[in-house]
Each structure stands twice: as structure tokens, then as C-alpha cells.
């Protein structure tokens, strides 16, 4: 079974160590704007949600690419951008339902999570284990209680109930 990034929002404190580590490995500088993992902050909900590519089985970014510039890394199952082939058409960024394919500002080519070749820097850097790299069947257990709580907060806010 392949491994996946298991991201647990309740453990995240919003420190951005993952963005720093990602940009360092991907671009050689500490620049969160170039990171392909991003932390969404919902400050009034006291909630922080790192998000990155889910490495979909049925990857729409791959299907959308007109020049086959996104390929599967056999070792990790990651969908990887072949930068030399990318023509910068942005179709993959539109096709992705989760908004996790980005573009590199200067070259305008696509960039996305490649699982760092099997040793994701974001998971190593996270100080609270909010990002773990685990076997796929161990991932996602946090999801239902979390959505239930977040949804109820929204209902409270919308209805004015305390």
C-alpha cells in the first residue's frame, strides 16, 4: 500500500513551518509564497487547515494537461510536473477541484506537491504532528468529528446561537 499525507487540522497551530520546509526543498529559498502546501487560517473559528495535493487516484490535473507534462512517480504514486514539458497553459490549475496545483511566478509553469520523492519535508518539519506521512489505510480518521464540529460552529454563527 502506498503512503499518503495525513493532515489533522486540530493539531495545527498555524506556525507555517511546513510552508518554509516545502519552499526550501522545492525552490532552495525560504519563501512561503512558493510553497505547494498552504495553511488556511480561519482565525475567528480558531482553526488552521494545511492543505496540499491529495494525489487523487483519478487525477484531473493529469487528464487536463494537453502535453502530458504531469506523470506518476512509480515509487510514491505522486503526480509530478515535468517542468521541461510544461507549456504554462494553467489548465491543470483549473482542473484541480482542490486548488492545489500552483504556478511558479517567473517561469509561469505548474508546480505541485511531489511528496519530495518519498520523504515529505512538511511532515518532518511540523512540530505538532498535524502533518504525517502514513500508510493510506491509517489516514483520515480525524475527518468526521472535525467536520461535525466545524459545521456546528458555522450553524451557531449563522443563527446567532451561543
Amino acid at each position: 500500500m502506498s503512503k499518503v499525507l495525513n493532515i489533522v487540522p486540530d493539531r495545527c497551530t498555524g506556525c507555517m513551518q511546513c510552508e518554509l520546509a516545502c519552499s526550501w526543498v522545492q525552490t532552495g529559498t525560504f519563501a512561503p509564497s512558493k510553497s505547494v502546501i498552504r495553511v488556511n487560517v480561519f482565525d475567528e473559528e480558531a482553526s488552521y487547515a494545511p492543505y496540499t495535493c491529495l494525489q487523487c487516484d483519478e487525477a484531473w490535473c493529469m487528464s487536463a494537461c494537453p502535453v502530458n507534462a504531469i506523470a506518476i512517480d512509480e515509487a510514491t504514486g505522486a503526480k509530478v510536473v515535468i517542468e521541461a514539458s510544461c507549456i504554462g497553459c494553467h489548465l491543470c490549475t483549473i482542473a484541480c477541484p482542490f486548488g492545489t496545483v500552483f504556478t511558479t511566478p517567473k517561469s509561469d509553469t505548474a508546480t505541485k506537491c511531489n511528496l519530495c520523492g518519498g520523504d515529505p519535508a512538511c511532515a518532518t518539519a511540523c512540530p505538532t504532528d498535524a502533518i504525517e506521512y502514513v500508510e493510506a489505510d491509517r489516514a483520515g480518521g480525524w475527518f468526521e468529528p472535525w467536520t461535525e464540529r466545524v459545521n456546528s460552529n458555522y450553524v451557531e454563527a449563522a443563527t446567532g446561537a451561543n
Binding site: 497551530t13 498555524g14 506556525c15 507555517m16 513551518q17 518554509l20 480558531a46 482553526s47 505538532t128 451561543n162
Partner: peptide, 24 residues
């Protein structure tokens, strides 16, 4: 308190996020 909150690059997260709830 409902959550810790960290500043940028902080591995401590001393920030307290609090809710007043029914006491608001």
C-alpha cells in the same frame, strides 16, 4: 481556551485562543 496559536515559525505556540461562548 479552545486552541493554541503560533506565530510564524513558532514551535511553542504560547498563544491562547479563547471563546467567551455563553458569557459573551
Amino acid at each position: 481556551m479552545v486552541s493554541n496559536k503560533a506565530c510564524f515559525a513558532c514551535t511553542i505556540a504560547c498563544g491562547r485562543v479563547c471563546r467567551l461562548g455563553e458569557h459573551s
